[in-house]
Amino acid sequence: MQRDARFLQAENVRLSENGDSVIIIDQTQLPGAVKYLELRTDVDFYDAILKLKVRGAPAIGICAAFGYYIMARRIAEADPVCGYEEFCHRLQDRKEYLNSSRPTAVNLSWALNRMEETLRNHEEASLQEILEILEEEAIAIQQEDIEMCRKISGYGLSLLKDGDGILTHCNAGPLATSVYGTGLGPLILGREQGMNFHVYSDETRPLLQGARLTSYELQKAGIDVTLICDNMASLVMKNGWIQACLVGCDRVAMNGDVANKIGTSGVAILAKYYGIPFYVLGPVSTIDRTCSTGADIPIELRKPEEIKEMFYEKPMALSEVKCYNPAFDVTDHELITAIITDRGICRPPYTQSLAALFGVETPNRSVE
């Protein structure tokens, strides 16, 4: 298949040249080493998503879409004369298995559902034609993400000034998407245009993605970055060093509540207190139209070892000490200055501005 040149710009998640596997950067190895993994089976994809070898809501969705295609290809190779309904049934089982890997990021289920809908829309096609169609759809999902990231970055940059101090939490750069990123996209785009920012990157517990990934990406992009511990955010705000907070998102409810990496809510509360704009950036695919409020968002709980043992030579707590280790929290819509999407900047009230993104006419749309 002749692939768009833009497709080749994304190196963190990509289809192999012969199309029989997916190649990802193993984000658990960064920043110490850049290692690539080849995913071939449903277990490979499940493990990569569960263990955050690939992470970031858009990147998870892209990986899942490619995974769906690869799983379809495996079924067809094992049984070339498989009937359409049996083919769909076998693929449905693998889809549900992959979808169970992480519950919070809506892009996972969104991408898998989109691939399944594509399959169901081509019942009359041959098995070979279906595989080609699914491959094209997965590539389209990634190419759309590239364009969405460019648009989000442009909208976000319009809210910033040269020389601004920025606080970010977790990682929402190219590694979490395709190019530019969401939360980091305006900074990278601005740097390309000659603008300068000073970014304070929260280390972001429990997996230190701000330390390992965000500071890595910003440093490589030539952006002035200072790594801080999560509990230092209040001080740098009080010192007047922060003019805006930029974060990504894993799921957005229709009232504007947002799920993002644990600690995001605390940053938003501090920003509100110090009068600092708090911006959430993400593609429209991250908005869950079935989710009314943040109370409806499932929160993933992870193993206590990630707090007590990971990144340490020796355990930092007694083995019998209990741990509460949620991967995400929900930031209340009242704390959010704007939600920046690929279709525009949404302002409060979010029940109206988010609905307007989907063509639902309401008074006071509040979309720029």
Rank of each mutant, 00 (worst) to 15 (best):
E300R: 08
E300H: 10
S265L: 11
C291Y: 11
M254D: 04
L270I: 10
P298R: 09
L246P: 09
Y312W: 13
P277Y: 09
G294M: 03
D296L: 10
N255T: 02
I297T: 05
E305H: 13
G256H: 01
I269E: 00
M316T: 14
K261S: 05
V284F: 02
E309S: 15
K314T: 15
G266C: 01
D250V: 06
M310H: 09
T290F: 14
Y279W: 06
S285C: 13
K308N: 12
P277H: 08
S285E: 08
G275D: 10
E309H: 14
K308V: 13
V247S: 03
P298F: 03
P304S: 12
I269W: 00
D296P: 08
L281M: 11
I276K: 04
P277A: 07
V258G: 06
K308I: 06
M316W: 08
A317K: 12
L318G: 14
E313S: 13
V267R: 04
V258W: 01
V252Q: 09
F278I: 01
P315N: 06
G275Y: 14
D257M: 03
K303V: 10
Y312L: 13
K261E: 04
E313M: 11
A268K: 05
D296T: 00
L301P: 03
T264N: 05
G248D: 05
D250R: 00
T293K: 10
I307M: 12
T286N: 12
G263V: 07
L246Q: 01
L301Y: 12
A259C: 07
D288P: 07
A317C: 15
I276S: 02
F278T: 08
L301M: 15
P283A: 11
L270W: 09
I276M: 06
D296N: 10
V252W: 01
A295F: 04
P304Q: 05
D296H: 11
